[in-house]
Computed example of a mutant assay.
Amino acid sequence: MSDADMMQLYSKRILALAADIPHLGTIESPQGSAKRRSPQCGSTVTAHLRMENGRISDFGQEVRACALGQASAAVLGQNVLGASRDDIERGTRELTAMLKENGPVPAAPWDGLEVLIPARDYPNRHASILLAWQATLEAMDQAESG
Rank of each mutant, 00 (worst) to 15 (best):
P39T: 08
E94P: 08
Y10W: 03
G146R: 10
P39Y: 12
M51Q: 13
L131S: 05
D121I: 08
T26W: 15
I88D: 05
D111S: 11
C66R: 03
S84K: 03
E138V: 12
P104W: 04
G77K: 00
Q31K: 08
A97P: 09
L15C: 08
T96C: 13
L9G: 01
D111W: 05
I21L: 05
G103H: 05
A16C: 06
M140P: 03
S145K: 13
A67T: 04
L15S: 08
Y122I: 15
D3A: 14
S2V: 08
G82S: 09
T136C: 10
A127H: 12
L137T: 03
R120E: 04
Q134M: 12
I27A: 02
R55H: 11
F59E: 01
S2D: 11
R55T: 11
Q61A: 07
A34E: 03
M140G: 01
D3S: 15
A71N: 03
A34H: 03
A143S: 05
P39L: 09
A67S: 07
W133I: 01
K12R: 15
I27S: 02
A19I: 04
V80F: 00
Y122W: 14
A19L: 09
E94S: 10
D141K: 09
P30W: 02
M140N: 02
V80K: 01
E89L: 13
V80D: 01
D87M: 04
M7Q: 15
A67E: 00
G25M: 06
S38L: 06
V45C: 04
A47L: 01
L49V: 01
S43G: 10
G91N: 00
W133D: 00
E114G: 15
E114T: 12
L24I: 14
Q134D: 13
S57C: 09
M6A: 14
